[in-house]
Amino acid sequence: MDDVFAQLWQHYLDSCFLLSQPLSSSLPFAIITAHNPLGQVLEPCQNRLRDRALQGDIEQLLVPYRIIIGTAADLSHMEKSWAVFVSKVQAAELAKKYQQNAFYYVADNVLSLVPCLAGVQEQQIGDFRQRVRIVSELPEICD
Protein backbone atom coordinates (compact mmCIF):
# COMPACT_ATOMS: atom_id res chain seq x y z
CA MET A 1 0.00 0.00 0.00
CA ASP A 2 1.57 3.31 -1.04
CA ASP A 3 1.72 6.30 1.32
CA VAL A 4 -1.08 8.24 -0.40
CA PHE A 5 -3.45 5.28 -0.28
CA ALA A 6 -2.43 4.47 3.31
CA GLN A 7 -3.34 8.03 4.31
CA LEU A 8 -6.69 7.78 2.50
CA TRP A 9 -7.39 4.43 4.17
CA GLN A 10 -6.69 6.00 7.57
CA HIS A 11 -9.24 8.73 6.80
CA TYR A 12 -11.79 6.01 6.07
CA LEU A 13 -11.00 4.35 9.41
CA ASP A 14 -11.44 7.66 11.26
CA SER A 15 -14.80 8.56 9.67
CA CYS A 16 -17.97 9.49 11.55
CA PHE A 17 -21.54 9.56 10.29
CA LEU A 18 -24.29 12.16 10.45
CA LEU A 19 -27.92 11.06 10.64
CA SER A 20 -31.11 13.00 11.22
CA GLN A 21 -32.52 10.14 13.32
CA PRO A 22 -31.04 6.96 14.79
CA LEU A 23 -30.70 3.84 12.65
CA SER A 24 -31.42 0.46 14.14
CA SER A 25 -28.37 -1.73 13.86
CA SER A 26 -30.38 -4.89 14.57
CA LEU A 27 -30.32 -5.66 10.84
CA PRO A 28 -27.05 -5.54 8.90
CA PHE A 29 -26.59 -2.71 6.42
CA ALA A 30 -23.97 -1.15 4.18
CA ILE A 31 -22.90 2.47 3.91
CA ILE A 32 -22.09 3.30 0.29
CA THR A 33 -21.28 6.48 -1.60
CA ALA A 34 -20.80 7.26 -5.27
CA HIS A 35 -18.73 10.39 -4.56
CA ASN A 36 -15.10 10.76 -5.53
CA PRO A 37 -14.37 7.44 -7.28
CA LEU A 38 -11.06 5.78 -6.39
CA GLY A 39 -10.35 8.71 -4.05
CA GLN A 40 -10.25 11.27 -6.88
CA VAL A 41 -12.07 14.45 -5.87
CA LEU A 42 -14.74 15.37 -8.42
CA GLU A 43 -16.67 18.57 -8.99
CA PRO A 44 -19.90 18.81 -6.95
CA CYS A 45 -22.06 18.48 -10.08
CA GLN A 46 -20.27 15.25 -11.04
CA ASN A 47 -20.77 13.82 -7.55
CA ARG A 48 -24.46 14.77 -7.63
CA LEU A 49 -24.94 12.92 -10.93
CA ARG A 50 -23.18 9.85 -9.58
CA ASP A 51 -25.25 10.02 -6.38
CA ARG A 52 -28.53 10.13 -8.33
CA ALA A 53 -27.46 7.10 -10.36
CA LEU A 54 -26.55 5.20 -7.17
CA GLN A 55 -29.90 6.10 -5.60
CA GLY A 56 -31.64 4.75 -8.72
CA ASP A 57 -29.73 1.48 -8.44
CA ILE A 58 -30.60 1.23 -4.74
CA GLU A 59 -34.30 1.86 -5.44
CA GLN A 60 -34.29 -1.02 -7.95
CA LEU A 61 -33.18 -3.38 -5.17
CA LEU A 62 -36.50 -2.74 -3.33
CA VAL A 63 -34.81 -2.64 0.08
CA PRO A 64 -34.95 -0.03 2.84
CA TYR A 65 -32.37 2.76 2.63
CA ARG A 66 -31.62 6.14 4.20
CA ILE A 67 -29.36 9.09 3.57
CA ILE A 68 -26.29 9.16 5.79
CA ILE A 69 -23.38 11.59 5.62
CA GLY A 70 -19.89 10.17 5.95
CA THR A 71 -17.60 12.78 7.45
CA ALA A 72 -14.19 13.42 8.88
CA ALA A 73 -14.31 13.71 12.67
CA ASP A 74 -13.64 17.46 12.41
CA LEU A 75 -16.33 17.83 9.69
CA SER A 76 -13.72 19.12 7.22
CA HIS A 77 -14.79 16.64 4.53
CA MET A 78 -18.25 15.15 3.95
CA GLU A 79 -19.71 12.76 1.41
CA LYS A 80 -23.39 11.99 0.91
CA SER A 81 -23.85 8.28 1.34
CA TRP A 82 -26.63 5.75 1.70
CA ALA A 83 -27.33 3.27 4.47
CA VAL A 84 -28.67 0.32 2.48
CA PHE A 85 -30.08 -2.85 4.01
CA VAL A 86 -28.37 -5.36 1.73
CA SER A 87 -25.90 -8.22 2.04
CA LYS A 88 -22.17 -7.57 2.01
CA VAL A 89 -22.01 -9.18 -1.46
CA GLN A 90 -24.68 -6.84 -2.86
CA ALA A 91 -22.95 -3.86 -1.25
CA ALA A 92 -19.63 -4.85 -2.80
CA GLU A 93 -21.24 -5.00 -6.24
CA LEU A 94 -22.65 -1.48 -5.85
CA ALA A 95 -19.44 -0.06 -4.43
CA LYS A 96 -17.39 -1.57 -7.26
CA LYS A 97 -19.84 -0.28 -9.86
CA TYR A 98 -19.28 3.24 -8.51
CA GLN A 99 -15.51 2.73 -8.34
CA GLN A 100 -15.19 3.02 -4.59
CA ASN A 101 -12.07 1.92 -2.76
CA ALA A 102 -14.22 0.55 0.06
CA PHE A 103 -17.59 0.65 1.79
CA TYR A 104 -18.70 0.28 5.39
CA TYR A 105 -20.75 -2.58 6.72
CA VAL A 106 -22.60 -2.66 10.04
CA ALA A 107 -23.64 -5.97 11.62
CA ASP A 108 -24.60 -6.34 15.29
CA ASN A 109 -23.57 -2.68 15.77
CA VAL A 110 -19.98 -3.47 14.67
CA LEU A 111 -18.71 -1.09 11.98
CA SER A 112 -16.33 -2.63 9.44
CA LEU A 113 -14.44 -1.13 6.52
CA VAL A 114 -14.69 -3.49 3.55
CA PRO A 115 -12.20 -2.97 0.72
CA CYS A 116 -13.16 -3.29 -2.93
CA LEU A 117 -9.50 -3.72 -3.89
CA ALA A 118 -7.33 -6.81 -3.83
CA GLY A 119 -4.55 -6.89 -1.27
CA VAL A 120 -6.38 -4.93 1.43
CA GLN A 121 -8.10 -6.74 4.30
CA GLU A 122 -11.49 -5.98 5.83
CA GLN A 123 -11.08 -4.15 9.12
CA GLN A 124 -13.42 -4.01 12.07
CA ILE A 125 -13.50 -0.42 13.32
CA GLY A 126 -15.69 -0.77 16.39
CA ASP A 127 -19.04 0.32 17.79
CA PHE A 128 -21.13 1.98 15.06
CA ARG A 129 -23.20 4.04 17.51
CA GLN A 130 -20.04 5.71 18.84
CA ARG A 131 -19.35 7.00 15.29
CA VAL A 132 -22.83 8.49 14.80
CA ARG A 133 -23.85 12.09 15.42
CA ILE A 134 -27.56 12.84 15.32
CA VAL A 135 -28.22 16.26 13.80
CA SER A 136 -31.48 18.16 13.39
CA GLU A 137 -30.80 18.66 9.68
CA LEU A 138 -28.34 17.01 7.32
CA PRO A 139 -25.91 19.44 5.66
CA GLU A 140 -25.91 20.13 1.94
CA ILE A 141 -22.82 18.57 0.44
CA CYS A 142 -20.85 21.00 -1.72
CA ASP A 143 -17.46 19.37 -2.06
Rank of each mutant, 00 (worst) to 15 (best):
I58N: 11
A83G: 11
E59C: 12
S20Y: 13
D57H: 12
P139E: 01
L49C: 15
G126T: 03
Q130F: 03
R66Y: 01
A118S: 12
S25E: 06
Q7E: 11
K88E: 04
Y98V: 06
V89L: 07
A92Q: 14
A91H: 08
P115Q: 14
P22N: 13
A83H: 11
I125V: 09
Y104N: 05
Q99T: 09
F17D: 07
Q60Y: 03
A30H: 04
D74M: 07
L18G: 06
G56I: 03
F29A: 15
D108V: 04
A83L: 13
L42N: 11
C116P: 03
H77T: 01
P37R: 08
D51C: 13
Q121S: 15
S87F: 07
Q40R: 08
F5G: 00
D74N: 14
C45T: 14
K97Y: 08
S24R: 04
P22D: 09
R50T: 05
D2E: 06
P44F: 05
D57V: 05
L8K: 03
V110G: 09
Q40D: 12
Y98K: 06
Q10R: 09
S76M: 06
S25I: 00
V4N: 07
Q99R: 13
Y12Q: 02
I31Y: 06
T71M: 07
L42A: 13
F128D: 04
E140Y: 03
V120L: 14
I125R: 02
L62K: 11
D143R: 03
Q130L: 11
F29I: 14
A83I: 06
R129Q: 15
V132A: 01
S136C: 09
W82T: 00
N47A: 10
G119F: 06
K80Q: 08
E93C: 11
E137D: 04
T33K: 12
E43Q: 14
E43W: 05
I68C: 01
G70T: 09
V110M: 15
A6V: 03
P64E: 00
T71Q: 11
I67F: 01
C45S: 15
E43D: 14
K80P: 00
A83N: 10
Q60K: 15
V110C: 15
W82M: 03
Q99F: 09
R133S: 13
I31H: 04
L8N: 01
S112K: 14
Q90H: 10
L117N: 05
V89S: 12
R129A: 15
Q60I: 00
I31E: 06
Q124T: 04
Q10D: 07
S136H: 09
V106G: 11
L111S: 08
L111Q: 04
P22L: 10
D2Q: 02
V114N: 01
Q40A: 11
R133H: 09
Y65S: 05
R50F: 06
R66M: 00
C16H: 07
I134T: 05
S81K: 05
Q46D: 10
T33G: 14
G39D: 03
K80H: 01
E59G: 03
H77D: 07
I69N: 04
V132E: 02
K96M: 09
